[in-house]
Amino acid sequence: MLLHEQLRNYRLLLASQSPRRRELMTGCGLPYELAPRFDCAEVYPAGLAAEEVPLYLSRLKSEAYPAPLSGRDILLTADTVVVLDGEVLGKPRDREDAAGMLRRLSGRHHTVVSGVTLRTTGRMHSFEARTSVWFRPLADEEIAYYVDAFRPFDKAGSYGIQEWIGYAAIERIEGSFYNVMGLPIQKVYVELTRFLNE
């Protein structure tokens, strides 16, 4: 039985305000409902390795979800970070911060890591995906154009691969393209299938 048919017996709740995650869930044909917005302080231990942050935060978001789950609910939470030189590049504070991040990424390789957690009333399962991304060197005027035209202030690492910068500046990737967009949807499909059939 196909996954979307199995999910008819469940209510898949996507706890994310990201339009890109919604687009990916819809594109994959997964029937879901958007969970109500809730607050979660995305704070992680200071000694945690950068690559482990998104998995930690996806679990933290899952545990912070305030509404009780019913017996047929599956809650999906996720977090995505850009890692460069062992440091997390999160969402930029402002224009200057965004431009600074892009200057650091220019001409270099970095890793995009997503953590995803699935939770029901009785079980929790977390997994991650990693994608390597190579930027060609960027001119300051290109960085300024991208930041001003696309305002990537809600994006980890200050860029969206599906926007102009992805077409014009990313030389290659190894791993899931959709992971860089914000959700490793193929792995979500596989892990969700496994989760339902265990």
Results as ranks from 00 to 15, higher is better:
residue 191 E to R: 11
residue 179 N to Y: 00
residue 30 L to F: 02
residue 181 M to C: 14
residue 145 Y to C: 00
residue 39 D to I: 01
residue 37 R to C: 08
residue 48 L to A: 02
residue 13 L to I: 12
residue 133 V to I: 08
residue 130 R to E: 11
residue 101 M to H: 07
residue 66 P to F: 00
residue 41 A to P: 09
residue 21 R to Y: 10
residue 112 V to H: 09
residue 71 G to A: 10
residue 124 M to P: 00
residue 181 M to S: 13
residue 63 E to K: 14
residue 177 F to V: 11
residue 149 A to R: 15
residue 164 W to L: 13
residue 75 L to G: 05
residue 88 V to Q: 10
residue 28 C to W: 13
residue 148 D to G: 12
residue 124 M to V: 05
residue 10 Y to W: 14
residue 5 E to D: 12
residue 49 A to T: 05
residue 68 P to V: 01
residue 60 L to A: 13
residue 2 L to D: 13
residue 104 R to Y: 02
residue 81 V to A: 03
residue 16 S to W: 06
residue 161 I to F: 07
residue 182 G to K: 09
residue 118 L to H: 14
residue 137 P to M: 09
residue 121 T to R: 15
residue 182 G to E: 07
residue 28 C to T: 02
residue 86 G to D: 07
residue 124 M to I: 03
residue 172 R to E: 05
residue 71 G to R: 11
residue 46 A to V: 11
residue 103 R to E: 12
residue 100 G to N: 10
residue 6 Q to R: 12
residue 190 V to T: 10
residue 26 T to I: 00
residue 99 A to M: 10
residue 178 Y to D: 13
residue 70 S to E: 09
residue 101 M to G: 09
residue 185 I to L: 12
residue 101 M to Y: 12
residue 72 R to E: 11
residue 53 V to A: 10
residue 129 A to E: 15
residue 68 P to F: 03
residue 171 E to A: 02
residue 55 L to E: 04
residue 197 N to T: 11
residue 88 V to H: 11
residue 171 E to Y: 00
residue 96 E to H: 10
residue 33 E to M: 08
residue 47 G to A: 14
residue 19 P to K: 08
residue 43 V to T: 15
residue 139 A to D: 12
residue 146 Y to M: 04
residue 162 Q to P: 06
residue 127 F to K: 03
residue 182 G to M: 08
residue 30 L to K: 02
residue 18 S to R: 13
residue 136 R to L: 04
residue 122 G to S: 03
residue 98 A to G: 05
residue 172 R to Q: 04
residue 150 F to R: 04
residue 140 D to V: 02
residue 13 L to N: 10
residue 15 A to E: 05
residue 149 A to F: 10
residue 29 G to A: 15
residue 74 I to D: 10
residue 153 F to N: 00
residue 125 H to D: 04
residue 127 F to E: 03
residue 112 V to R: 06
residue 45 P to G: 05
residue 64 A to T: 06
residue 1 M to Y: 10
residue 113 V to P: 06
